[in-house]
Nucleic acid binder design. Sequence first.
DNA 1: GCGACAG
DNA 2: ATCTTGTCGC
Length: 229
Amino acid sequence: MIQHAWNLTPQEAVQLQKKLAEKVRVEPLDVENVRLVAGCDISFSAHASAEAPVFAGIVVLERPQLTLKERVGVRTVASFPYIPGLLSFRESPPLLEAWARLSTHPDVLIADGQGLAHPRRFGIACHLGLLLNMPSIGVAKSLLVGHHEAVPNDVGAWQPVVDRGEVVGAALRLKQNVAPIYVSVGHRVDLMSAIRLVLQCRGLTRLPEPTRQAHLYVNALRRGEIPLD
DNA sequence: GCGACAG
DNA sequence: ATCTTGTCGC
């Protein structure tokens, strides 16, 4: 099991990403046999500070009905600032804490951010997948790197996201007349498998259900509408 | 040096 | 990410 310190300087974090990026595995995933899909997200209290309270949550849905099987949340503090390209050093520790409290065992994890569509090909989806040794997929609402052609206005339509001549992800449309989402490989999956799984996690909104429900959950936690265990 | 920049 | 109500459109 891979493990490393989190109290790093931004410069050290960048070096660590370059080193860990070499360990990411891109391979087909047997999507048809995926039963439990985990979605995770973070919610911060107002005013971004170094010691801001943060709520991290994981929701586990069961395919193909996308039924909620489990959800777990934790309250802690962020110990790393938000720096584009280093998001995972801010959000992963809280998410790993929540993950450790799961009683179910998800087959795949969908992270709220990029996977390989990252300047060093190591977004938060790759980071979490590698540390948890889990198939993982990145689903982001906007692009960090790369470009793509216009995506046809049809559910399921997608266009490759290219960065420095390399296909690093896909702009995928889950709903008509709204912006597409960005799907990229995290760990132990390939792009086609990732796209297929995300499509199977489609609800009626722009974002896939795991991501959407995790978002709603952590926001409810922050507002005190739902108690922590 | 000038922009771009996940959440 | 967060601060925030109503409003236009499918």
